[in-house]
Simulated assay, not measured.
Amino acid sequence: MLITVKTLTYYLSEHPSIINFQWSYDQSWASTWSFLFTSVTLYLTLSIFLHLLLALLLRRGRPVSLGPIPAIHSLSMTVISATIFAGILLSASAEIRESRWFWRRNKTTPFRWLLCFPMGTRPSGRVFFWSYVFYLSRFVHMWRTFFTILRQRKLVFFQLFYNSVLTFMSFLWLEFSQSFQVLAILFTTLVYAVVYGYRFWTGIGLPGACFPLVVNCQMVLLGCNLVCHVGVLRFHFMKGGGCNGIGAWLFNSVLNAAILLPFLKFYVKMVLEKRKNIGFIENQNQDAKFTKKIKEK
């Protein structure tokens, strides 16, 4: 067991390719602004084109069977998310352990480092390697949009917007060595591992939860991100030189707000409708009991 743990630790945080990673145009694939804009534009174009093509070729509302492909995708995303979570957790622990002596001189704590990178931080080393892997995983995540279009025959604007925004944000984390990204990746990959694991579970025909697990997990994720953003702002204006990549963080905050507001509106609407349905069912049950008593009399 110890050998297995040591082996995993080595390949997730101590491998030379992880320790010596550098985010740069010539060393990192998909690291240019042109690639980012081209890929996101292509994603949006293909999604719209596929939706319109199906509308022309197939009867409205008729789904396209994909077999086990969505379940395989969910399983793949579960494994990828769990790997990134474990990798960045071990990498962050290693960075904290190795940098503790330096932080004491600068009055920096591990918690502050997780929220607020020191000024001058460069996108290299362990945590940025896993940030890069997370950025690449966003393109794998996009495939779910095409599954939704094919199976449900719906083009969901929020899904397009959400995937595009998260891809941009993960690119900014690397490009500007943005603060807060370690916790953001930890929270996101943990939630994704649960959500995609649940989707795989239901995708192979096993029973689902009795409550909206996916929506609740996403709500928890957005709430955690909101709290952490407040923490970044607090540390930035404290004595200590500010947080690295604060400009990108501000833009990131605007994008997060653009995601949070419509999702919060949807979540509140869903909860109210659920309560309304529960109240309607309870009233029906009470009416049925009352009618039964009258008949018995």
Rank of each mutant, 00 (worst) to 15 (best):
F168S: 11
Q286L: 15
Q286I: 10
S76M: 05
L272M: 13
L222I: 11
P262W: 03
I80W: 07
P207F: 08
L160T: 04
W143K: 01
T41P: 00
W33M: 08
V40N: 09
Q27E: 07
T202L: 03
Y192H: 15
G203M: 04
A30R: 03
V127W: 05
V156N: 11
P110I: 13
L36V: 07
G242M: 02
I96W: 12
F147W: 05
T9A: 04
I88G: 10
F146M: 12
V182P: 10
A257V: 09
G205C: 04
Y25I: 05
A94K: 15
F117I: 04
L136H: 10
Y192D: 13
S28A: 15
F171W: 11
Y192C: 09
R59N: 02
M1C: 09
P68M: 06
M238R: 11
L8K: 10
L221P: 00
M219D: 12
F21T: 14
K276P: 00
Y267V: 14
P207S: 11
A288I: 12
L53D: 03
T108K: 13
L250M: 06
F117Y: 10
M270K: 11
R122T: 14
F139E: 08
F49P: 03
E175G: 00
E14S: 08
V194H: 05
F117D: 03
V79I: 14
G61F: 01
G247P: 02
F37D: 00
C116F: 02
S31N: 10
L52E: 12
W23Y: 15
K293L: 08
P70A: 04
W101A: 15
H236G: 09
L264S: 14
L44W: 11
L226G: 13
W173H: 13
I48G: 03
F263G: 12
S17Y: 14
Q159K: 05
R144H: 10
K289S: 07
L183S: 08
V230C: 03
T78N: 04
G125N: 09
D287P: 00
R60A: 01
I72T: 09
Y198H: 12
C228T: 08
Y11R: 10
L213P: 07
Q152S: 13
I88D: 12
T9Q: 03
T38L: 02
E282F: 05
S179M: 04
Q22N: 00
M238A: 03
L155G: 02
A184D: 10
G87A: 00
W23F: 15
Y192K: 05
V64P: 09
V195M: 14
I281K: 14
H141K: 15
L213F: 13
S17D: 15
P70R: 06
K293H: 07
K107W: 09
Q159N: 06
L264V: 13
Q218T: 01
K6D: 14
L89N: 04
L155T: 07
S13C: 13
R62N: 04
L114N: 07
G247M: 08
R104F: 05
N216K: 09
K289I: 01
